[in-house]
């Protein structure tokens, strides 16, 4: 009995640690993004709340919490209220299968440094990632606004196109690792990170991951210049905050997945494993920010062309090549 209880406590501790880390990181990613974007554009970025704007996320949080929660007339109440939660929760839940270190042995007992190691972890991640888009599509639809609806539709279309490339690009990784478990995939990179073995898969995955997180240059669902704010045009206050949070958590998830699939996960010299994972996540995210500062938004047809005519064929070819090599 106590054994069971202890396991439960450890699980809770792991969840708490991961959630806290993810949330704080999300908040500060926003700040980092704004600061960096500022610097990319030769200005300062937020620098008024606290020294170097360090309290800006706190200020933003307070502001979002205190803002009036508006709902447009004619909106579908239940769906409108639930949509932001869908986005945020699915993003957060994906972290459940991301390993952040090797097994720890405390008091002769082995504790896996992952919230839960399911053997189909990879499928779980993709399933949740696709579910997240429901939040976008439903939020857009329930708002009873043309801008939001267009944003939602674009989100759904984009998801379908890039989900495929995302999934296909990872097949070689699974083939090499011989497992769907993220823990196993990390372990399979003990020698060589997959980025060196599978550069093509890495490229396709990275691009698709950016499309999945709906970030520039793939931010068509919210395209401010065309759609107001796209699917979350009608949201205010903390509900808007949840969309926002979801996006940044999603960025981290994608960073973590890139790390796990291609950069060797928590593996690395000197530093403790969770720190390595963090460093890798942050590096990926920083790259995404740099991309945002540099590239313009794709047009809708370009987006579709890239997905269907470039990324998916590339991923398929890559599978064939990998298969051929493995068979040889």
């Amino acid at each position: 009995m106590w054994f069971w209880l202890l396991g439960y406590l450890v699980l809770m501790a792991k969840i708490t640690a991961v959630l806290t880390a993810v949330m704080v990181l999300a908040a500060y990613l926003v700040l980092v993004e704004r600061k960096l974007l500022g610097r990319f554009q030769v200005r300062y970025g937020p620098n008024r709340a606290g020294i170097y704007g360090i309290l800006q996320p706190v200020a933003d949080g307070i502001k979002l919490l205190l803002k009036e929660d508006l709902m447009p007339e004619g909106a579908d109440r239940a769906i409108f209220l639930a949509a932001p939660a869908v986005v945020a929760i699915t993003a957060l839940m994906m972290f459940a299968v991301v390993p952040f270190g090797p097994r720890l042995t405390i008091g002769g007992r082995e504790i896996p440094m992952v919230i839960t190691d399911i053997n189909v972890g990879l499928l779980y991640v993709f399933a949740l990632s696709s579910l997240g888009v429901y939040g976008v599509a439903l939020g857009g639809w329930a708002s009873n606004s043309k801008y939001a609806l267009l944003g939602g539709i674009r989100g759904a279309a984009q998801m379908i196109s890039y989900e495929l490339a995302l999934g296909l690009s990872i097949v070689p990784v699974v083939m090499l690792a011989g497992s769907f478990s993220l823990v196993d995939i990390v372990n399979a990179q003990a020698g060589l990170p997959f980025i060196l073995v599978q550069p093509l898969a890495f490229g396709v995955f990275l691009i698709s991951a950016m499309a999945e997180t709906k970030r520039i240059p793939f931010d068509l669902p919210e395209a401010e210049t065309e759609l107001g704010a796209g699917y979350h045009t009608e949201y205010s206050g903390m509900r808007f905050g949840l969309f926002f949070l979801g996006e940044y958590v999603h960025m981290q998830v994608m960073g973590a997945l890139v790390a796990v699939f291609f950069l060797g996960g928590w593996r690395g010299p000197v530093l403790p494993p969770p720190v390595w994972l963090l460093v890798k996540i942050v590096l990926v995210v920083l790259f995404m920010i740099w991309v945002r500062a540099t590239l313009p938004r794709l047009r809708y047809d370009q987006l579709m062309n890239l997905g269907w005519k470039v990324l998916i064929p590339l991923a398929l070819v890559n599978i064939l090549i990998t298969g051929a090599f493995m068979a040889a």
Partner: peptide
């Protein structure tokens, strides 16, 4: 050309901002 874009934005990280406070 994409690389050139990244180079340009990347270089800005090391330029002093013009902003007057």
């Amino acid at each position: 050309s994409i690389a050139a874009g990244f180079y340009t934005t990347g270089r800005h990280l090391f330029v002093r901002p013009f902003t007057e406070s």
